[in-house]
Amino acid sequence: MLELPDKQDNPWAVLSIANAWKSLPPMLWSAQAPEWSPVEELIDISPMALRLLQLDVQQLRTHVEGVSTLKNLHSGSILLPGMSPLAQKYAGHRHGVFNDRIGDARSLLLGE
């Protein structure tokens, strides 16, 4: 896994990331590292999502280090400080048999 560049001017490095799910019983989640998947280019960045994260939309569209960080986050090759990825678990009946660890192929929760 790549290390996030330790530059204070990288807009992604200032995020405060919580991991409230990890305070729940482990029967509801399991630690899971992201799997690498190549990201050739970013087509767009959601301005509404960036505002929720209190990040500057224009800065992230033009900031070389910020765009690179976002591509690496999406590819699974880096984690931001404080990220502790996990997969949520759920139970149910599959093929007539109760299974307490079905999983539903959701994306990983990287942080809140």
Rank of each mutant, 00 (worst) to 15 (best):
V64L: 11
P81K: 15
A33I: 00
G76F: 08
L80Q: 07
G103I: 07
W36H: 13
E65M: 09
V67P: 00
P38I: 08
D9Q: 11
W21A: 14
L24M: 10
V67C: 09
L73V: 06
L15S: 05
M48L: 11
P38Q: 14
L79Q: 09
D56S: 15
Q32P: 05
M1W: 05
E3D: 10
D44Q: 11
G66P: 01
I17C: 01
M27L: 14
P25C: 10
P11W: 03
N99E: 14
Q54A: 11
K7N: 08
L24Y: 10
G82Y: 07
G96E: 10
M83I: 02
L109T: 12
T62D: 13
P47F: 03
D56H: 09
L79C: 09
R61D: 08
K22E: 12
N99H: 12
G111C: 02
P11F: 01
L50W: 06
I45W: 03
K71N: 02
K7W: 07
R61S: 03
L108H: 03
W29G: 01
H63I: 06
H93R: 12
L55E: 05
N19W: 00
E40Q: 13
H74K: 12
D100F: 06
W36F: 15
A13P: 03
D44F: 06
W21S: 05
H74D: 01
L109H: 10
G66E: 01
Q59E: 14
N99P: 00
D104M: 07
M48E: 13
L73E: 10
D44M: 04
D6A: 14
R61K: 14
I78N: 04
M1D: 07
E41W: 02
L15D: 09
A91E: 14
V67N: 04
L42T: 02
A49C: 04
R61P: 00
E35C: 06
P11G: 08
L60I: 13
D9I: 02
V14M: 09
L86H: 06
M27Q: 12
S30G: 05
L73H: 04
W12P: 04
G111P: 04
L108C: 03
A91S: 15
K7G: 00
S46L: 02
A31N: 02
A87V: 06
P11D: 02
W29L: 03
D44P: 00
L2D: 14
D6K: 15
N10C: 08
Q54R: 14
L24A: 11
W12V: 02
E41K: 15
H63V: 06
Y90V: 04
P5C: 06
K7H: 10
T69R: 07
I43W: 08
G76M: 09
D9G: 00
